[in-house]
Design a protein around this nucleic acid. Structure first.
Lengths: 192, 192
DNA sequence: CTGATTGCCTAATACCTTTAGGAAACTCCA
DNA sequence: TGGAGTTTCCTAAAGGTATTAGGCAATCAG
């Protein structure tokens, strides 16, 4: 009955790797147990249940993403910062598709509030300091960027842009140009 | 052994309703069988398997969405058309959250090519005729709008905007203003 | 009315999830 | 160093979902 040395951390890390290999949807307690060559029930001492496992993988991904974002943002401002952050999201999704999917998992409000998601929001606001936006426009812009990054990465990962021209690379740089331009020339509300 | 009158269409329609009630992830062959008060195996004459069922629900949602879009776009142009289409997506997601999630399901390329997804792309291009965009910028813009709608609806449905001010309604109208302004003043590529 | 077809059923297999309780492997202190 | 206590992993078991094979009854065509 040799002990393998399971810990929640090791399980979550292995679960994240599994997600990148076979897709987040295929991450299952059973598959994880197989990976450690251990019986399924053994995992339940370290992880509450399947949902808990998946949530923890999501939290890990959000942390990693926030760390990369913080590093990328250091010393940058304006469009430089915008592009750096955007590329962090996109590159992470390409390197770690399973984790990236996990990061988009819906979290219940308390979990979300305690997650690295709040760092993400802070970083986005930091980027927007390079543009001239008062509240509530700054919040609108945060939501715009969040929606766009989320959506673009989802669609690209799902293959939405892969079988048509121009290639996704070009669209990406041009859309960052466009968002930068929009943030610099944020429009006043239209007449109601 | 009374016959219930199952057909693929009825199953898919009931599956869509089930998705709206309990979430697309909870749509399962078993749950659907329960809903018809029929044994699980009976569904397999009408639907290939679970994945097939879910795919068909996604296709139904894409159709419905395209129909609504076509109706909303009739007789509109420019920002009017943009806002109409955008609201179709958002309203549909609020009325039919399960279907809307289904519509964002990843489809394999052949299925996607045969789906109403192509109508969506055509409609988006039709909207962009109200703006002055040449290729490849038009394609970039299609992808921008697709990403934004997809992302915003996901985040809003996931409760991302619900516990903070300003409320999502205001952000939505302001972001449509912003996208309209961006499309009218599409920037030239930045210096490489 | 009868023969063919179709529709739903029983039965069986194979996963995955989760809980309860047991035994071996560590830990740590006397 | 030698237990006592805790921790870690295991066996066992129950319940849910997915899927296939094969059967009988309801329906339909002629």
């Amino acid at each position: 009955m040799a002990r393998v040395g399971l810990t929640p951390e090791r399980l979550v890390r292995a679960g994240a790797e599994l997600a990148d290999e076979v897709g987040f949807d295929e991450v299952t307690v059973s598959a994880l147990a197989r990976r450690f060559d251990v019986k399924v029930a053994s995992l339940y001492s370290h992880v509450r249940n399947s949902h808990d496992l998946r949530t923890r993988i999501a939290l890990l991904a959000l942390e990693e993403l926030a760390d990369r974002g913080a590093a990328a943002l250091a010393g940058r401002a304006g469009k430089d910062a915008l592009a750096a952050m955007a590329n962090v999201y996109r590159d992470y999704a390409r390197e770690h598709p399973g984790r990236a999917t996990a990061a988009r998992m819906r979290l219940d409000p308390e979990t979300a509030a305690a997650s690295a998601g709040v760092r993400h929001a802070r970083m986005t606001r930091a980027i927007l300091r390079g543009y001239d936006l008062e509240e509530p426009d700054q919040t609108h812009a945060v939501r715009l960027l969040g929606s766009f990054f989320h959506g673009y990465v989802s669609l690209e990962l799902g293959g939405g842009f892969s079988h048509s021209l121009p290639d996704s690379e070009e669209t990406w740089t041009r859309l960052l140009d466009a968002l930068d331009a929009l943030l610099r020339n944020w429009p006043a509300p239209s007449a109601p």
